[in-house]
Amino acid sequence: MKLLKTMLYFIVAVLATFLLASIVGTQLVLADIQGFGLLVSSSDRVAATMHDIAGLATMLPILISVTFLLAFIIAESGRRIMAGKRTYWYMAAGLASLPAALTLIKTLMGGTVFAAARTDSGMLLIAFCGLIGGWLFARLVNRGKAE
């Protein structure tokens, strides 16, 4: 039961991070498009955001799941060895996980698979999405333990 609950919290954290990262990614791409002089209406923005959530639904959740899994295992181990608040450990793990994974993929494949992360500012925003995912997971786990 405990394991099932933890898995559920993990899935919620992954989905939240995926939605945030996808939405952020679309807005960054649209900002570039506007920079070329094209007009992006509100309906264009909504449609593009929905399109990208659907389009990224296969690749991005898998990427986030794998990186979060590794990052949260490391965070939990760190917390047990060095002590400290779970929330901070998981936020740090979430923050570092996606930049680490995307950098590793770029090193191996030569390109950035998630276009939003090609710039430093984009990578920072994606890292922040990971931080929120880590915070959410820790918060859900803490609440579960309190119950």
């Binding site: 996808s22 990614g25 679309t26 791409v29 990224l56 639904a57 690749m59």
Partner: peptide, 21 residues
């Protein structure tokens, strides 16, 4: 490119939602 395109990114996201300008 990349302001208009008839393709999408390898990730499945838009490179641009526009095909003409």
């Amino acid at each position: 490119w990349p302001a208009i395109t008839h393709g999408v990114d390898y990730s499945g996201a838009y490179v641009s939602p526009f095909t003409e300008a």
